[in-house]
């Protein structure tokens, strides 16, 4: 089963499609969670996902806004799609009929 951050990385990379690379995934995660995403956590998670066969990464073209430096392109594999889908279904199932409103708890 995926970890929480692994799911966030896979989801962000899948949504970005061909534009999925390190900085873009990081921005997407920060926008979605409202929290910072460290480069260290992102890159080590990408390595872990790649070792599990859930993503493929390669060095892409450089761009002027990156000072002529190349980017690490990320592509989610079919195995990665399955893993993310399983995680999403599991979270959805376990969250069924769960209300996170404090008023309901009282």
């Amino acid at each position: 089963m995926l970890g929480e951050f692994e799911y966030l990385v896979l989801s962000a990379a899948f949504r970005l499609g061909t534009d999925a690379y390190g900085a873009a995934i990081r921005r997407a995660i920060e926008d979605a969670t409202g929290r910072g995403c460290s480069i260290g956590a992102l890159y080590t998670t990408l390595d872990r996902l790649e070792n599990k066969g859930l993503v493929k990464t390669w060095m892409g073209a450089s761009t002027p806004e990156r000072g002529g430096r190349s980017k690490r392109i990320v592509s989610v594999t079919s195995k990665g799609v399955q893993a993310a889908s399983s995680f999403y279904k599991a979270v959805t199932r376990v969250s069924r009929d769960v209300s996170w409103s404090m008023a309901d708890q009282a």
Partner: peptide, 14 residues
């Protein structure tokens, strides 16, 4: 080297 390049580029972009 490759990771260094990517990280420096990400930092510049962000």
């Amino acid at each position: 080297p490759t990771e260094r390049d990517a990280v420096r580029g990400d930092l510049m972009e962000s």
